[in-house]
Amino acid sequence: MNDKSLDLDTYIDAVAAALGLPIDPAWKPAVRANLEVSLKLARLVDEFPLPDETEPASVFRA
């Protein structure tokens, strides 16, 4: 186990405790795997360069 997965395990434990959400130890590897994928996708979005003049998408209401 590397330092990164230890950090995620600590984060998962802390967030679960803060939310009062019990996590069965058998499910912890799956929770960690999903969090790793979510963080990877978030990094891709965060690293995508946008010019300063980019406008947010319009909101249409019916």
Rank of each mutant, 00 (worst) to 15 (best):
F48W: 06
A30W: 08
R43Q: 13
F60K: 10
D46I: 11
D7T: 14
Y11V: 14
D3H: 07
D13V: 15
R61A: 09
R43H: 14
Y11S: 13
L44P: 03
T54D: 07
S5V: 12
D46N: 13
P51T: 13
Y11R: 14
A14W: 07
D7N: 15
V31Y: 01
P25E: 06
D24P: 06
A18Y: 08
E47R: 02
A57P: 14
A16I: 02
D24V: 03
D52I: 13
V37F: 01
M1V: 04
V59Y: 04
E53Q: 12
M1S: 06
L6V: 05
V15K: 15
V37R: 02
T54Q: 12
P56M: 05
A42R: 05
Y11F: 14
P25A: 07
P29D: 00
P49G: 02
V37L: 04
V31N: 00
E36W: 02
R32M: 11
L8H: 01
K28S: 01
N34Y: 02
E36I: 05
R43K: 15
D46K: 14
V15Q: 07
D52Y: 07
M1L: 03
L35D: 00
M1H: 02
S58G: 08
A30E: 10
A30L: 11
D9A: 06
A42T: 12
V45M: 07
V59A: 05
L35T: 02
P49H: 04
A30G: 10
L50E: 07
R32I: 04
D52C: 08
A30Y: 12
V45S: 09
D13G: 05
T10L: 15
A17Y: 07
W27G: 14
P29H: 01
A62V: 05
E55T: 11
A14D: 12
R61M: 09
L44Q: 13
T54A: 15
G20D: 04
L8V: 00
D24Y: 06
A14L: 14
P29C: 01
L39G: 01
V31I: 03
R61N: 13
D9Y: 06
I23T: 01
P49R: 04
D52V: 04
R61V: 10
W27H: 15
V45N: 10
V37D: 10
D52K: 14
R32C: 08
F60M: 08
K28V: 03
A18S: 14
R43W: 05
P49E: 06
D3M: 08
L50R: 10
D13N: 08
K28N: 01
D3R: 13
D24E: 11
E53S: 11
K4V: 13
M1P: 03
K4G: 10
L8D: 00
P25R: 07
A26Y: 12
A17S: 11
L50H: 07
R32A: 05
N2K: 13
S58L: 08
L41Q: 09
L41I: 12
E55R: 15
A42Y: 04
E53W: 10
A18L: 13
